[in-house]
Design a protein around this nucleic acid. Structure first.
Lengths: 176, 176
DNA sequence: TATATTAGCAAGTGATTACTCACTCTTATG
DNA sequence: CATAAGAGTGAGTAATCACTTGCTAATATA
């Protein structure tokens, strides 16, 4: 992949995440990437194709991020690492995650299958730890980290920081 | 408020919620509302003004929805009613809530102050029930119902239904 | 009833949109 | 070295965008 093509993808990611897909013109992308507008269409056929390329990148990236959790064999560690997930997002990755969460509201876009392996592994962890309703427990934890992620992306890590140890301790002292 | 003005608001709510603000043209709104395009600008000055009118409606509507919870003096009932909140959303109100959640990603839009009274009342409830960290407990529950709401709006109530009783029971058997 | 104000429409406006086209420059390969 | 294919450009294009204007119809108020 050529440098200019990579630049187009990087700029498009940033603008789509911040301003939205429809609100971002191909002209603006070209300008900010220091590239002729026509080049976008040479590489990606149309505007939607540019978005699709970003989505493909995202699918690959997310599965990489999940690897260390899915390989974890200690159930308590699985839960802890899951809780820590949103707090470990680097600021440089904010546009990436912002776009992911925004795309969830697009009608045609299948979103949550990417996180299904995590959900399954969480259910296994809760089962191993003897929770009476492991699937529901996994779903709730997934909901929590989703909403925390959203909070972090909008207001920064500090806005949610205190929840990290709170949640870790909570899941270390299970209900009777 | 005239019938046509109400119709414009209703159609705009639906289209903004489903397709997004930028992706919805004033021409389409006018067509779907059986109204001339110019009438939109007569009533709301510009497209952004139309959105602002919807936001104003939303602020009023949300505070009405929260009244029964904020007036509840039984802390356990406060928590239960909060958990039930997302499950009681009528299908006719989906566009309303969809738009709310979408707007959270708009950079200039202050979103979460509307829910602050609920957060405060939840913290009071958890304090009364003797939870060691009531504010954090309130924040977590708020996160849970937000994420559940999102799930319901995207995939319907049935996709989250089983979590309702699970959560209610969970909050009735507190940790030691 | 006279008049002023609001509601509503049809037909525009210039600006912006996604996208195309004809062309040149670069690079790899036989 | 010749040639073909891909990278890159700049000036277009028709369509659509948010918005305006000049007008009439309805409604309220005096």
């Amino acid at each position: 992949m050529t440098d200019r093509k990579k630049k187009i993808l990087a700029v498009a990611l940033e603008l789509f995440a911040n301003d939205g897909f429809s609100a971002t013109s191909t002209k603006k992308i070209a300008k900010e990437a220091n590239v002729s507008e026509g080049l976008i269409f040479r590489h990606f056929e149309n505007k939607k194709g540019l978005l699709n390329a970003l989505v493909q990148q995202a699918i690959a990236r997310i599965s990489v991020i999940l690897i260390p959790i899915l390989n974890e064999k200690n159930p308590k560690e699985v839960i802890q690492k899951t809780v820590e997930l949103p707090f470990n997002i680097d600021k440089s990755e904010y546009p990436f995650w912002k776009l992911q969460f925004k795309l969830k509201w697009e009608n045609d876009y299948e979103s949550n299958e990417k996180m299904q392996p995590l959900l399954d592994h969480l259910a296994w962890a809760f089962t191993t730890l003897g929770y009476p309703e492991p699937e529901k427990e996994a779903t709730i934890l997934n909901h929590i980290i989703e909403s925390i992620s959203i909070g972090i992306l909008r207001d920064g890590v500090h806005s949610q920081e205190s929840l990290k140890t709170f949640l870790i301790e909570k899941y270390n002292t299970p209900t009777k």
